[in-house]
Amino acid sequence: MDSNDVRSEWAERSGEYSPTYYAHYGPDETSELVQSILETEVGREASVLEVGCGVGRHLAALADAGFSDLTGVDVNPAALDVLAETYPELAETGSFHAEAIEEYATDVADDAFDAVYSVETLQHIHPDVEWVFDDIARIAGDLLVTVENESGEYGEVNYVDDDIPLYYRDWHRVFTDRGFVEATSSERKRDTVRVFRPSE
């Protein structure tokens, strides 16, 4: 499976882990955690990008908390359709892009966002397009937050439902190698939360 196959799988996803699946659950404790980190580290006036925003449940929690400069990118156009139905006010006030992060980020200016975050999204980036991590680091002005699965051996591949690959990476190394300093990290049941700031 190459990077095009991975993008296609997520862009056409239905059933479990599909847009309607996540819309049913709505904001959760991860949404609250991301909100708390962003409020503490950059404040509600910050410009924020979610990589792999899906139906927008985490961004919706930010909007409810008073954040107003919100952007999301997701490879699945149907996810943004569900977002518009589920969170119409967010859809109207936010900026949303139906494309792969590696397509979107290349045209974004340096330090375009005060904060960039991902929730179990970067773990699905194919090794062929790992260069996108350079762009993610480049556009994150003050803060980068990763909530990603690190439970396997680094370099190992796991498959979701036997078809969607999950690539285990050392996210500390990925982003400290790209000029960031890890401010905090915490292990959770299914993922690791890391908060990065650009090195001085």
Results as ranks from 00 to 15, higher is better:
Glu103Ala: 09
Val129Met: 05
Pro19Thr: 02
Thr184Cys: 05
His172Lys: 12
Arg173Asp: 08
Arg57Ala: 04
Ala112Tyr: 01
Arg188Trp: 09
Ser118Glu: 00
Glu150Arg: 13
Asp74Asn: 07
Ile164Val: 13
Ala63Lys: 13
Phe133Ser: 02
Ala63Arg: 15
Glu102Trp: 15
Glu120His: 13
Asp81Gln: 10
Leu59Ser: 01
Cys53Ala: 01
Phe180Leu: 02
Val195Asp: 13
Glu150Ser: 01
Glu120Val: 14
Gly26Lys: 08
Pro165Gly: 02
Val108Gly: 08
Asp110Ser: 13
Ala109Ile: 02
Asp135Gly: 06
Ala11Tyr: 09
Ser47Ala: 05
Ile136Arg: 12
Asp2Trp: 07
Leu62Asn: 04
Ile37Cys: 06
Ser18Leu: 03
Lys189His: 14
Ser68Arg: 15
Arg44Leu: 04
Ala78Cys: 08
Asp5Pro: 04
His97Phe: 15
Glu153Asn: 13
Val75His: 06
Val119Tyr: 14
Asp135Ala: 07
Gly54Ile: 00
Arg194Tyr: 01
Asp110Gly: 07
Ala100Gly: 14
Ile101Phe: 14
Val145Met: 04
Leu49Gly: 14
Phe113Leu: 05
Asp110Tyr: 12
Gly155Gln: 00
Phe180His: 09
Glu89Leu: 13
Ala84Asn: 12
Val145Gln: 03
Asp5Ile: 00
Tyr154Asn: 10
Leu59Gln: 06
Ser31Cys: 05
Phe175Cys: 08
Leu80Thr: 00
Ala140Arg: 11
Thr121Glu: 03
Glu102Leu: 06
Thr192Gly: 08
Phe67Gln: 05
Tyr25Trp: 15
Leu166His: 12
Leu33His: 10
Tyr87Trp: 06
Val73Ser: 11
Leu49His: 04
Glu99Thr: 10
Ala140His: 03
Leu59Trp: 09
Glu156Asn: 12
Leu80Asn: 04
Leu143Met: 03
Ser3Cys: 11
Val145Cys: 02
Val132Glu: 03
Asp177His: 12
Asp134Ser: 09
Arg190Trp: 14
His97Met: 04
Asp161Lys: 11
Glu92Asn: 15
Gly179Trp: 05
Leu49Lys: 00
Val116Asn: 12
Pro88Lys: 03
